[in-house]
Design a protein around this nucleic acid. Sequence first.
DNA 1: TGATGAGTATATTCAGACGTATACTTAATG
DNA 2: CATTAAGTATACGTCTGAATATACTCATCA
Lengths: 199, 199
Amino acid sequence: MSSNPEGTEARPRRLRRQERREQILDAATRAFAKAGGFTPTNLDDVAAESGVTRMILYRHFDSKTDLYRAVLDRAALRLHAAATSGGELGDHSVAGMLRWASDDPDAFRLLFHHAAREADFRDDVDGVREAMVAALLPHMEKVAVSEQWAAWAANLATTTVIEAIMAWLDAGRPDEDEAVDRVLRAVDGIYQAVVPATP
Amino acid sequence: MSSNPEGTEARPRRLRRQERREQILDAATRAFAKAGGFTPTNLDDVAAESGVTRMILYRHFDSKTDLYRAVLDRAALRLHAAATSGGELGDHSVAGMLRWASDDPDAFRLLFHHAAREADFRDDVDGVREAMVAALLPHMEKVAVSEQWAAWAANLATTTVIEAIMAWLDAGRPDEDEAVDRVLRAVDGIYQAVVPATP
DNA sequence: TGATGAGTATATTCAGACGTATACTTAATG
DNA sequence: CATTAAGTATACGTCTGAATATACTCATCA
């Protein structure tokens, strides 16, 4: 059970398949985020960031598209897990999302600032988004003046959560707990925007 | 002064330089918006949309980049004009922006959903954005608990205006006048999110 | 110790798309 | 009518980057 007797292994060049795969996904997330999405990133960038030859990327993923999908799917899965760790989607999800965004800002940006705008990949992201919209819609329908405005509000509130977190990252991530509260208050503003009348 | 005596000219194939240039910019705006930004759009798409050969694009613009810049600059100029038609930037700007977005949704989407994420072109858009942020910042600083949160709020409010208008386009553009009011109320929610305390 | 498989190194193929060159057509205008 | 300039048609050069092929190195482990 001690196949690695050395005390401080410098950095093992040979990883087992699964480990290397994860490492590549980590590096690819950084590379894709830095360059700004699928097209502007080339496989040499990813290979360099992974500390590995371009060839080996093909031993783990069929194509650049396949790799990108794997990156996005893993990120979406993790975000979904973070948002539903306390049960269903709801107010508490904001805390989970914000914490996850803080842990992996590259993945967060990649999902919502790049993949969301890429025709071939938006579907890989929209699962999460649609779940958020669906969770918000009933609440909006309760207060909104019409179905049409309720749909508008549910979409905008979802976007607001995402962009509020993004802006928080950009602002230097002050006061994590307070941030959750402020994001929720911003969302509350969307509610106030679709109630029938303001006398 | 009557060089075109025909009653109903079908469609004049030869336009004067300036007219053709404008027509190409119109078509290019549609083509770039439809394909989703600079990279995924090729010049054949633009040529087809313009009803013109690819060759002639080069008689009006030095390069694809030059053409794209011209499209973005014109759009940004028009948006700025729409937002400041009533003087300085302020609450009334929302009405102007919303009307312009309604008139030219392709240009609006191109600016804020595509060019804003493209490394080589974001600067061509950020002029407008930065002006909005700058206009909002003093107001935020008056109410916000700290400088950092004021900056966060100014950025988020700007994004909210843009995304609220985008969501309004997606929702089928109901009630233009009401829409302006609702967008402003959503922005008001951002103010409420950064005031010092909520007893 | 010998087979396995992770990783390297280098060369090559292939496709898409920007950009250029060239020869031809035809409307507009003095 | 003759010149000019807008536009067409087609082919070509070139570069980037994805994907494949092949031969080699060397840990690891049964």
